[in-house]
Design a protein around this nucleic acid. Sequence first.
RNA 1: GCCGGGGUAGCUCAGCUAGGUAGAGCGCCGGGCUGUUAACCCGGUGGUCGGGGGUUCAAGUCCCCUCCCCGGCGCCA
Length: 432
Amino acid sequence: MGRLVNTRELRDLSEGEEVVVRGWVYRWRDLGKRVFIVVRDAYGIVQVVASKDYTDSMSFKVAREASIESSVIVEGIVRRDKRAPGGVEIRAKKINLVHKAEEFPIKGGEGIDFLLDNRHLWIRSRRLTAVWRLRQNLFNAFREFFHKEGYFEVSPPMLTQAAVEGGATLFKVDFFGRPAYLTQSAQFYLEVMIFSLEKVWTLAPSFRAERSRTRRHLYEYWHLEAEAAWSRMDDMMDLVSRLVAYTVNRVLETSQEELSILGRNTELLEPARKPAYPRIMYEEAIDILKRKGVDVKYGDDLGADEERVLTSEFETPFYITLFPLELKSFYMKEDESNPGLALAFDLLAPEGVGEIVGGSEREDDYEKLKNRIISRGYNVEDYNWYLDLRRYGSVPHSGFGLGVERLIMWIAGLDHIRDTIPFPRFRDRIYP
RNA sequence: GCCGGGGUAGCUCAGCUAGGUAGAGCGCCGGGCUGUUAACCCGGUGGUCGGGGGUUCAAGUCCCCUCCCCGGCGCCA
């Protein structure tokens, strides 16, 4: 019996080697005296050929009965053949039908509603499997990057007591009779951690009950967040640029095959390999939009349409900085040299993807922060422990949050966020 | 929350404007085929038209209510 190999290892084997491959039936064609079975595993596909000439008679019978998505173990000999997809195939000696699948509901051509109802089966498609592999490579890149930068990975809570900002978009849960909420952001907890570890990051889910219905929104998404003591806004933007450029480079190095399956034009990612992303001030963004004929005025928030116009101006991700204070969250620090402006930044991805990062320098003065909380109409008591951080050795500090699925959308060139995560959570859809 | 589109066979859809006993393609099942690539050829199988009420001799089609899904906006990452 040959050695067990997966379909990726198989590509490098030479003619005549005896191997064992196991996987699921992806395509099946019976030509009478010869049966072609394309077998799928985690890494790809390989064509298995069964013939009366070299396959034992029981196995040949099995080959003729194998249905789509049946699980099989195949013993056979590697053959290089131009007619096989990928140029390599296996001449089957023995085929073990581990489980004969019932009629598989997904056959191609289904609509999105049907596919989402069958996500637990759709998950194994070649295209989605490529996304999961790319996602793995992206997560590895995050860890490598922060390790190199000297950041500590920390584990913030998912169950929280109070709102970070605004309460309408929180998912409420019952915490032994008391109200609790699923976290929207780890930011406040990361701010706590910098007084212990100085530079921290986390990769964790965030939950937002925004009633959004767009191809860029999930109710549960993976949030990459970092926070650093002594870091000013410009330092943080430098870090974000290095992070995004590093990630783009690593994905281009490790995921060529996946990007190819997804049909991504990787030329469009080349300019983003260098961490030199343009920075424009909010005021400049407004000017650009006016010049483009968009009906906006200073003080307006930038919506999806405005972002789309702006992203068409750049080939790389770019920053918008220094927003009017009232457009941004209460914890963002006011720029001393530009009163009325927040030391805040958004990073927008090109090709119409839009905002992928939001960050800022945090207000580190106790009185100023408290006044901001009061002027927004929030309860000061809800923020006691957060305010405490400004009472015991407060330091300048900055941080950011990155939407992992939006980053994947851009890098992988996907037109809908649902394909970036195995089980996308949308409004009115919690099954499966 | 608002605007728009949709729910008819297992799947994708046509039929609705001008009411008259429900259609196609794919799939599936059976047979054939020595190299297929979404294989091909022949034969077969398919539906309380999302749910409820109304108008009518007659409703998939017209009217009212309701449920569900999709796309977009606001908000955000």
